[in-house]
Every structure is written in structure tokens, then in C-alpha cells.
């Protein structure tokens, strides 16, 4: 295997939540390395610590012990300002519930991260229109979120995640609120973007359709990594899961 840059490195991470008087250990020592440009799926039953690991990688939450490196930067060392910069420039987020800002049009949603990044309004609008065309919403950029279907909202979210050309796209159950066909479309879109733009896509998911396009699947169970499978092994162990939209 040729040497590839590790975009994400998780080292001996544990996370403990305090639920009332009970301490719950969501992650019990996780080590993980993710190579740049790959399409990774994190799979596991609910309550397995999947979302917690996902939040750690996204810099949304800090580990109780252990370290998370994004592009070889320890995110625990970053102050609020640098963390905001990381979220703005390095990581694009896609959520299960789309989280399009309701009061803004599709285009304004896409341009907002670019405005945060210091881009001029005209440049941001131009790039925003380009991105919306890229995700197949070229004619709907003046629409408000409530005028868009779920699949279209998720496309806006994908365009927004790409706004500042991030190195990583984090997708938390991106197909969780979508029907089969629309979900498959979003997965195809993410895969295409990851190949065309060399973006690392990391998605936490239950969706078996995801396995098909993943370069690597990380199985989580009970706060630990159960196994990590590459694409080749996967087709053997999973067999026939050929669902094409």
C-alpha cells in the first residue's frame, strides 16, 4: 500500500458522560487512522459510541482522555478561535436533519461559510451558484428551505459543506431522513464528489447502501472498534448488497 497522508488520527480516545449520578463510558479506547481522500463509513448499532466518535473527529466534542489529530493538529490544543477556523475551513458537516438555516435561501445557506471565511459577497455568490449547480440544484437557489424537498435540502447541505473546499466532509446519517431512492442519490453524489475533489468523506450510518461505495468500513460495538474492513474484504463478507439507485 502506497504511503498516504493521514487526515484524521484518533489515539486512545475515551469519553465518559455523566448521566445524573451514573457515569457512562461511551468510548473505551479507540485508535483509528483515516487516509486522505478515502470514503469511510462508521457503522454500528445505536448506543455503540458511533455518534460520540463522530463528534470527536468533527471537533464538536472533546475526549475525556486520548488525542484526536486532524491533519496532524491536536484539536484539544486549539482555542475557540482556532476551532472555529477549523470548522469553517477544514471540515464540512452534513447532518441527518439537514439543518439548513430556515430563514435563509438555499444560496444564502451555501454562501454563509464563505462569508465567515472572509470571502467577498460577490465571489461567494458566484461560487455558491456553482456549487448548487454541482449538486443539481442550479435552478432553485433562491428558494427557501421549506420550499425544498428533503433530498433537495440535503443537496443544499452538501453544497454548503463543500463551500470552503474542506479536506474532510463529516456526514452524520446523511440518508437517515430520506427515502431509499433519494438516499441512494445523495450517496452517489457524495461518492462522486469525494472522487472528483479528493475530499475525505467520513459518514456515520446505519445505511447498508453506504457499504457499496465505502473504501473502508469501521465497525463500532460497545465503545470499541470491532473491525476495520477495506473495500476488497467487504465484498466477500457482505456478499451481495448491490443496491443501485
Amino acid at each position: 500500500m502506497p504511503f498516504t497522508r493521514k487526515i484524521v488520527r484518533v489515539s486512545k480516545v475515551t469519553k465518559t458522560f455523566q448521566l445524573g449520578k451514573v457515569e457512562v463510558q461511551a468510548l473505551k479506547g479507540v485508535d483509528l487512522e483515516i487516509a486522505a481522500g478515502n470514503y469511510i463509513s462508521i457503522m454500528g448499532p445505536s448506543g455503540s459510541g458511533k455518534s460520540t466518535l463522530f463528534n470527536m473527529i468533527g471537533g464538536l466534542d472533546k475526549p475525556t482522555s486520548g488525542k484526536v489529530f486532524i491533519d496532524e493538529v491536536d484539536i484539544a490544543q486549539l482555542d475557540a478561535y482556532e476551532l472555529a477556523w477549523l470548522r469553517c475551513r477544514k471540515i464540512g458537516y452534513i447532518f441527518q436533519t439537514f439543518n439548513i438555516i430556515q430563514v435563509m435561501t438555499a444560496l444564502e445557506n451555501v454562501t454563509l461559510p464563505m462569508i465567515f471565511a472572509g470571502m467577498s459577497n460577490d465571489a461567494a455568490v458566484e461560487k455558491g451558484i456553482q456549487l448548487l449547480k454541482l449538486v443539481g440544484l442550479g435552478d432553485r437557489f433562491q428558494h427557501k428551505p421549506f420550499e425544498l424537498s428533503g433530498g433537495q435540502q440535503q443537496r443544499v447541505a452538501v453544497a454548503r459543506a463543500l463551500a470552503n473546499d474542506p479536506a474532510i466532509i463529516l456526514a452524520d446519517e446523511p440518508t437517515g431522513n430520506l427515502d431509499l431512492t433519494t438516499g441512494a442519490e445523495i450517496i452517489t453524489l457524495l461518492k462522486r464528489l469525494s472522487q472528483e475533489r479528493q475530499v475525505t468523506v467520513i459518514s456515520a450510518t446505519h445505511d447498508i447502501k453506504m457499504l457499496n461505495v465505502s473504501d473502508q468500513v469501521v465497525w463500532i460495538r460497545d465503545g470499541r472498534i470491532e473491525k476495520i474492513e477495506d473495500r476488497e474484504e467487504l465484498s466477500i463478507s457482505v456478499g451481495q448488497v448491490d443496491i443501485k439507485g
Binding site: 468533527g58 464538536l60 475557540a80 478561535y81 472555529a84 477556523w85 470548522r87 469553517c88 475551513r89 458537516y93 447532518f95 436533519t97 439543518n99 439548513i100 438555516i101 430556515q102 430563514v103 454563509l112 461559510p113 465567515f116 471565511a117 454548503r160
Partner: peptide, 16 residues
């Protein structure tokens, strides 16, 4: 809440 959280994920600082 959700709107504020989303903005923060997009890189908004507390003071924004």
C-alpha cells in the same frame, strides 16, 4: 438552538 448550532458548525464565533 439548532440554527445557532449549525452556524457554529460552519465556523461562527461566540461573538457573531
Amino acid at each position: 438552538f439548532r440554527e445557532i448550532g449549525t452556524m457554529k458548525c460552519l465556523g461562527a464565533l461566540d461573538r457573531f
